[in-house]
């Protein structure tokens, strides 16, 4: 739900402020790739209505966000591709593909794609955090958006702890990816919490 909330928060921000300054479209592009790699089983595996519905929502909303930021005025007029410049193609996609192949539990396309999507998701926030560091001042709704993006994976970790003790569920790849992903947020969370605590605007060092 936190993940869904972060997407809805971003959609609301784009519609309300009609601007995507401070928002990284490259991060959304990474997430679109993550979802496409991971949700291929939509075509051949039915787990539950909830599971299928959420996969469709995540894929469609992410592509819609990209469309808004890249091609739909007035939002796209405020998008600066030179500022949002983290070269994720070689820095993130490459290593995720290699790691996905090496660490896949079995060398089948779905498993390799799933594993690569876990590694890619764990670092997909980087373009967003780097863009915010350049801008330093973080607008309120953007701060909430990034905070929920960091929080959702932390709640997966809590669920993984529960599932390990309740049903012996083991998911080494997911666990490691989740720890990396949450770890990348820790310093943002610190500044976000401080800005909330002291009631000041969020400014990154």
């Amino acid at each position: 739900m936190l993940h869904l909330m972060s997407i809805l928060l971003l959609l609301w921000k784009l519609k309300k402020s009609k601007s995507c300054v401070g928002i990284s479209c490259r991060m959304q592009e990474c997430y679109a790739i993550v979802f496409c790699l991971r949700y291929l089983d939509l075509f051949y595996q039915f787990i539950s209505v909830y599971n299928t519905a959420m996969k469709v929502v995540f894929i469609s909303s992410t592509f819609y966000l990209i469309f808004l930021m890249r091609f739909q005025p007035p939002v796209s007029a405020t998008y600066d591709r030179t500022a949002d410049s983290f070269p994720y193609e070689q820095y993130l996609l490459g290593p995720a593909a290699v790691l996905g192949f090496i660490s896949a539990e079995e060398w089948s396309i779905p498993e390799i794609f799933w594993t690569a999507s876990i590694w890619l998701e764990s670092v997909s926030i980087l373009p967003q955090l780097i863009l915010l560091q350049q801008l330093r001042e973080v607008e309120n709704l953007t701060a909430e958006f990034v905070a929920t993006m960091g929080a959702y994976r932390f709640f997966y970790i809590l669920n993984w702890i529960y599932r390990y003790f309740a049903e012996g569920y083991v998911n080494w790849i997911g666990w490691l990816g989740g720890i990396v992903q949450t770890g990348l947020y820790v310093d943002f969370f610190y500044y976000y919490a401080m800005s909330k605590w002291y009631g000041q605007k969020l400014v990154l060092p």
Partner: peptide, 10 residues
């Protein structure tokens, strides 16, 4: 069916 490990998480 049990041989295919389905990823049941999003």
């Amino acid at each position: 069916e049990e041989d295919y490990k389905a990823h049941d998480e999003l």
